[in-house]
Design a protein around this nucleic acid. Sequence first.
RNA 1: GGAAAGGUGGCCGAGUGGUUUAAGGCGGCGGUCUUGAAAACCGCUGUGGGGCUCUGUCCUCACCGUGAGUUCGAAUCUCACCCUUUCCGCCA
Length: 425
Amino acid sequence: MLDINLIRHNPDIVRQGLVNRGSDPSAVDAILALDVQRREIIARSEQLRALRNTVSKEIGRMKDEAEREAKKAEMRRVGDEIATLEAELGKIEAQLAELTGELPNLPDPRVPIGADESHNVVVRTEQGTLPPLDFPAKPHWEIGEQLGIIDFERGVKLSGSRFYVLNGLGARLQRGLITWMLDLRRQQGYEERYLPFMVRSQVLFASGQLPKFRDNLYHDAEEDFWWVPTAEVPLTGLHSDEILSADELPKLYAAYTPCFRREKMSAGKDVRGIKRGHQFDKVEMYAFTLPEESDHYLERMREDAEATLRALGLTYRVKLLCTGDLGFAARMTYDLEVWAPGVQEWLEVSSVSNTGDFQARRANIKFRRERGAKAEFVHTLNGSGLALPRTMIAVLENYQQPDGSVVVPEVLRPYVGVDVIRKSD
RNA sequence: GGAAAGGUGGCCGAGUGGUUUAAGGCGGCGGUCUUGAAAACCGCUGUGGGGCUCUGUCCUCACCGUGAGUUCGAAUCUCACCCUUUCCGCCA
């Protein structure tokens, strides 16, 4: 949510920011007009309320019956007028909430301007420590099926396309990655949280998924439950409607959750393998910080995510997203992409974003610098650390051997329990 | 799923239609006293919106779980819903 005062006083800045990220700026004018109407109506109705409050007290003290009845009749008319104004106000505020709720965050000035992902900037490429493969690399679906650790057919039988089953060491590899990542996050200073995987509408509004992106979410038809598309959602809601004290900031959290996405927008894309499913696992990082420290923690969180890939010895690159590719709530985002030699693709395994006070406004998360000081909105950041299926792809394809086996990365061996994944293990 | 009792400020807790401007207490902050501290005493105390003689020790509106309703006037009365606790049922 953008600050209404920013829209009111600097509409040009807001319009420019929206244009830069490829959004329609016309809502700004509608919002400004509604804002003026809103304040006019409030001024009038409050004046009438003040009058009624005063006169009602007088009525309580009146002894003269006729005079009292006359005043009551008069206040009845005032009440009717207030009701009319309030009804009008309700409509205007609903429209205002709808329009402002759909405005995305404004890009940070340092974000390169561009229409789409082709304008993203590769900041850095980090060479992995693994020796290059000296044989033709197989894609992970072949590796997985030949080893018997990924079962696509039974996934489809159970739930349709974009679902799969992990068998034995496949499941253990993923579980090992999750546990290892959570341990790594803890060493980096993040507190672990186990969260609900279904949340109320309000929580999805706070993080920015609702109202605009409901098509990509799974929703329970009978209750107000939505399956989380990322742990970012419940983590944003964790401190909603709270006022934190400055000395407990930053609050750094890590959480493992499955993520559920309808992938309506990417129908037909990435249908092969485990790159894009309706259900996938992720370890997520999240931070609540002082406003002046969020830029610093964006870099810190990117470093922390990178450390995961470095520990696995994988080759990856860091991208700074351009304005046109920013997510709804983000004002600046780094993507980490890992190289997968089997599919010959850079896979997005992490997206690290600073949302500034955008989510904090929607979730009403504040802090106080000192006792008695005015409460201010915190800043929030989120980052994947990391998305599991794509990390699995990278591990399988980079650690594959000529005989079809897959070496388990050293850091994972205590978690997986074997050094090499072979057929029929 | 059934029954009962509840939901009031940071916390406890009073308040069944109008001196309530939400009593009182605790906590917190400031002060008096003190060598210092404690105690005692005095004062202060939340959130959001709007306005202005425009940033103030200002005026005003709203907020007692949520939403509607009754009324000149609602924390208080009515209805619906949500949540909590206890008991029963069911269950991992």
